[in-house]
Computed example of a mutant assay.
Amino acid sequence: MSSPNLDRTALATRLTEAFRARVTDGHWPLGSKIPTEPELVEWSGAGRNTVREAISSLVQSGILRREQGRGTFVLSVSDLRSSVSRRAAATSRRDCLELRLALDAASARIAAVRRTDDDAARLTTLLDERRQAWSGGDVHERIRADSALHRAVVGATHNPLLEEVYDGLLGMFEEVQLHDVAGDTDDLAQLHADLIGAIVARDATAAAATMSALLQPMINELDPPE
């Protein structure tokens, strides 16, 4: 006869993989809030403790992130992304911004060459959503809208490895950016419009230069590295 503890551990392992599959197959998209604990209990048929154990396992692996008072969100969709995210978590603001500049500028250049008509339409829509987000004072909504736009630029490269690495760093980029979006006005609105305009126009040089104009000033205002 098997031990009840072994049975519960096996069930938790299966449930963890079932939840992981919801992430990897897109049912729980990157950045989205996953169902509540009671909803997961109902969906899975497992007990509350087993559901908690499965969620905790994915939080520890970097796939999910708990936010006090807000819920649990998809932070990464693969082990590569989560390992990159964990490594990046201890980095400085300068290191983070320099890495983001390298990735975002390269992505903008490639996206301008490879973007499809669907990509162009999506970028235009997300640019408008970003603009609308600044009409309210919710910094988390501003971060979400800004990240969605930058992530769509990376998506327009159609380079899956670049997308995977970028997604692993997105949570860190968002944390570093929090104080940059707290102002009453969006001082970077025009540069974002110029960026998307350059990508839509397939002007790779202008796209990369505009991305640099967005991020380099944030690096310049920091103290030089020792």
Rank of each mutant, 00 (worst) to 15 (best):
D7E: 14
Q68H: 11
A121K: 13
G45H: 06
D104G: 05
T205L: 07
S44M: 08
W43K: 05
A102E: 04
M172E: 09
P160R: 13
T210C: 12
S57V: 02
P217S: 02
E163H: 02
A21C: 06
A209P: 00
D118L: 08
E226I: 05
R144T: 12
A89F: 03
R109E: 13
M211V: 07
A120K: 03
L80F: 05
L101C: 05
I199G: 07
S57I: 02
Y166S: 11
E37I: 11
A208P: 01
R52W: 11
D104F: 08
P224T: 05
D223A: 15
V23C: 11
T72N: 09
A105M: 10
D194G: 04
L222Y: 08
I110Y: 00
H179P: 11
T124D: 13
P29V: 12
D119I: 07
G136E: 15
E226R: 10
S92N: 08
R100G: 01
L15V: 04
A156C: 09
R8S: 14
G197I: 04
L162Y: 11
G197Q: 08
L178M: 11
S57W: 04
Y166G: 09
E141Q: 12
A206T: 10
R20K: 12
L30W: 13
V176A: 15
L80S: 04
V165T: 05
A120N: 03
M172L: 13
A201P: 03
A201Q: 09
I110M: 07
L30A: 14
L170Q: 15
E129H: 11
G197M: 05
L162S: 14
L6R: 03
V77C: 06
E98K: 03
G137R: 14
E226T: 06
A10V: 09
R93A: 14
M218L: 13
D146W: 08
A12H: 00
H179C: 12
H140A: 14
R52K: 12
I34R: 06
E98N: 00
V51H: 01
V23Y: 02
V113K: 12
Q68S: 10
L75H: 05
M1P: 03
A209Y: 00
D194R: 08
R144N: 11
S3Q: 01
E37R: 11
V154Q: 06
A18C: 01
R8F: 09
F173V: 04
R114E: 15
L15P: 04
Q190L: 10
A10W: 04
L161C: 09
E42H: 05
T124P: 03
L161Q: 10
Q132H: 15
D203M: 01
A182E: 15
V41Q: 09
P225K: 05
A108K: 00
